[in-house]
Design a protein around this nucleic acid. Structure first.
Lengths: 208, 208
DNA sequence: TAGATTGTTAATCGATTAACAATC
DNA sequence: TAGATTGTTAATCGATTAACAATC
């Protein structure tokens, strides 16, 4: 188990999880790696190999119990208990994230929202009162928040990241194009919509 | 040139481009693969190899001309001319995208915004009047828009994708967790913030 | 038992990195 | 010329896929 898990494997787990949740809703009790492959576009052999990194969850000749596999993947990803999120930035992007139902579905709760602007502090976004970013440290500690999302203007990104790290957040999602720096021990994920657009665009010029 | 380019190579090009733009601002005239490696975290040998897929842009013993390399990468990615974007969905997420300066920096222009809601149609978002989604086909054709961004509620995602494809859009960015289906010939890129959070979370449970 | 499907090993494939001749 | 750095080949590494024994 202490083996090194290739990043690609971890990235595919949410894919399998989504299919499991979907299939459970459809009333399927078992699912084969072939069916999972169909639904995800991933090679069935790879799915079996991916899962085998973490244990043996299926039964030969039968397949995987959907409910079972769901729980296993959730446990592996650490989704078996809720995670509280601190959202920094209450503008359009922040509001969009706060209202995003997909978070709740996986047990995430946006439990505090921060902003710098006088106008926004005190207003309500997604059912929460926006706090001033100066209260971040105290609130994050008190509510044992482990995940931070940066949705502020680029210029403020690094400062916000620093505050989050100081407050003890362990995972940061950065929606800013800025390459923020965090110490090791903190997991940083960057999501830059433009960067994705740029490399996708390459195929526009060639595939013609 | 007709060689097959590994996806990883294309995904790294925007990274190099960002560094080039940044260095140009700092007044640097030339940059070595070692310096690029420093700034991006990518192995210098890999950078040279990546670039060599497209040609020889550097000079031995000297390095790369920053201005030169910038233009080459922009040309490769198809950024040497502007791209018009149709943004579908004028809610919080749509508004955030419309106001995002990073698009403009790379020559993208959001040139039309669509929504379904009576309340939003006719209002202004990012300096543009929101049009009803029924006008999408005509507007996209008239303005020769090649890129579509889906920022609507999940339930409407597939329908919007169909409309965009019918209208002749070649690249679609999908900000919905729905796995929309498009015909081949259309490049689809999915960005699901939750999925990214899920796999990032894995490292929270282990790295402790 | 016969058919199905996993878990896992071995083979393949592709991507990354090291090394170095070419050359500025 | 001597030092630096590319472009490219060869070596390494890792990930994907095929194959199949185990077993339900």
């Amino acid at each position: 188990m202490a083996k090194h898990i290739p990043p690609g494997v971890v990235e595919r787990l949410p894919l399998y999880l989504d299919v499991c949740l979907h299939m459970a809703q459809e009333g399927c009790r078992t699912v084969s790696s072939a069916a999972l492959g169909q639904a995800t576009g991933v090679n069935p052999a790879q799915i079996r190999r991916d899962l085998s990194y973490f244990g043996s969850f299926g039964r030969r000749g039968v397949g995987y119990q959907v409910a079972d596999l769901t729980l296993h993947i959730q446990r592996i990803l650490g989704l078996d208990h809720g995670h509280r999120i601190a959202l920094v930035g209450a503008g359009n992007l922040g509001s969009a994230i706060a209202g995003y139902s997909g978070l709740r579905k996986h047990g995430f709760v946006v439990s505090a929202i921060f902003d710098k602007s006088r106008q926004r502090v005190g207003s309500k976004v997604g059912g929460l009162v926006v706090q001033h970013v100066d209260e971040l440290g105290e609130t994050v500690a008190r509510q044992t928040i482990s995940v931070g999302i940066i949705a502020v203007p680029p210029a403020a990104a690094q400062e916000v990241a620093d505050r989050l790290v100081d407050a003890g957040v362990r995972v940061i999602l950065n929606y800013t194009p800025v390459a923020v720096v965090v110490g090791r021990g903190v997991r940083l994920h960057n999501t830059d919509p433009v960067r994705e657009l740029l490399h996708t665009l390459y195929y526009l010029s060639t595939r013609t």
